[in-house]
Structures are given as C-alpha cells and as structure tokens.
Amino acid sequence: MVARTVTRPLFLEGTGGPGARADRVARRVFLACAALTGGTAAVVLGVLAVGAAQFFAEAPAGGFFAGTTWAPFAEEPRFGVWPLVAATSRITIGAILVAAPLGLLSAVYLQHYAGRRTGAVVAAAVAALASVPTVVFGYVALNAATPLLRLVWPGAEAFNGASATLVVGLMIAPTVAFLGREALAAVPPAYFHAGMALGASRGRVVALVVAPAAARGIAAAVLLAMARAVGETMIVTMAAGSHAGLAWSPLEGVRTLTAFVAQTSLGDIAPDGPDFRAVAAVAALLFVVTYAMHAAGRALLARRPAGSAHP
C-alpha cells in the first residue's frame, strides 16, 4: 500500500462535515455576542455624546471646564464642573496614597516573602477584600469610618471626603496588590537570584532590582486602580455627601463627578430635560478620563521591559 500523502484538497473536503458546521454555528454565536457588546457600547456612547453635545450647545465649554460653581438646577444655573473634578481628584489621589503602599507591600510580601501556606491565606484575604460589593464599603464608610474619624476629629461632618477616601483606598488596594504581584512575577527570576547571590538582603534586591524592573507593570497597576477610584460611585454617593463646593478640609463633604450622576439620577430625571443633559456632560467627562487612564495602563502593560528575554 502506498503511503497516503496529505494534500490540500483533503483539508478542503472537510468543510462540509458536521464538525465544520458546528464551527460555523459557534462562529455566528460568538459574532452575535461580540456585536451585541459592541453595539451596546456604541449606543451608550451615542446617548452620552448626544446629551453632552446638547449640553455644550447651551452652556459654553469654557464655563464648564473653568467655572468654579456647580449649580445645574438653580434658577440661574451655573455649570462650572471644577468643584466636582476637584472632589474626584482629591478622593482619587488620597485613595491611591492609601492603596499604593498597602497594595504594593502586599504584592511584595506575596511574591517574595510569604511561605506557601501563609501566602495562600494572605492571597485569599486580599481576594476576599476584592470581592466585597461596593455598597458594603459604602456602608462601612458611613457607619464605621466616619464615626471613628469623629472620635479623633469631632468637627468632621456627617458626610465627608476623608472617610470616603480611606474606604475607596481599601477598595482599590486589592487591584494594586494583584496587578502589582503580576508585574513582580513577570520579572525574570534570574534578577532576583543574581541580586541575592551578590549578598544583598531580600528587601534590597526587591526594592533596587526587582521593583525597578517591574516599574511599568507597577505603574500600570497604580493607574488602573486609580481609574477604578475615579469611577467609584457607591462609596462616595453614600459617604462623601453632595456638597459641590471647593472645600479644602477633608473633614467636609464633597461631591464627586460620579456622586453627582448617581444622586441626580436617583431623583428620576426626565430624559429630555436640562438635568439629563448636565448628567450626560458629566458622565461623558467621566468616561473620557477613565478611558484615558485605562488606555494608558494597557499601553504600559503592552510594552514589556527590555531584557525580559532571560528566563
């Protein structure tokens, strides 16, 4: 018998078989799902864009971005978004100041210090923190963080930036920990071993060799966690208040971009009214900011550091 040579037509023959038909069906299902997702995104973006466009047709963009008074529903409405932006920035920066040390130290501990068993326990604890619903964090901010804060500073308001900031920081710490650990794990172990073999302490090797080699990944972890903080809604809505002022004290209430959208939308806004357009403008701004942060984070992750060819 002559050995059978596999030629191209043999593969083509198979296109009508049941396996191929299943493939085609699966392909259509996947395509439909992808189209649905993409379509939904397009509709959401479209609604935001139209609402924001209508908003800017009535209110000049200069007043929106430079104005310092946010009173969209007043008799003479003022649309200076700065107080909301300032509140969001402060809470985001404060939260990352809490989350970055906490998350990065956890990441270093998990990757380079923890033994097998304690590591598993700590990782499980971090994962548990990551799976807490934000409404629970909101409840904690309102009913635990704020009362504690007021034991120290009795002047703290019922709704204040500090409690929300602290709890948002706790909420995003697992993001920093997990992404940071991934970044550390992506560093060639040879760096760690070589550093140790040069007679440096573990902490020194991690701080001076491994962490710098993981700098991009760590920056991405911090950036993506900050994007979560910017978009965080439940905690600030529940605990930070609705005061759209330019308060400097963290003990005072502040209103973030997200809290404005949520609190206003709770009051059942009419989809054709000015309220909706203001909400759309703020939501669009929020989208642009978080999208940019995500894109930057992904770009950092996409470009691996040079020298990672070594295993």
Binding site: T69, A71, F73, A74, E75, R78, F159, G241, S242, H243, A244, G245, G253, R255, Q263, L266, G267
Partner: peptide
C-alpha cells in the same frame, strides 16, 4: 428660587 450651595438630597 434658592441658593444653590447647599447639600441637596432626594
């Protein structure tokens, strides 16, 4: 007709 710099809530 109201001042606007208060904390509004539904």
């Amino acid at each position: 007709a109201s001042r606007a710099d208060y904390d509004p809530s539904a």
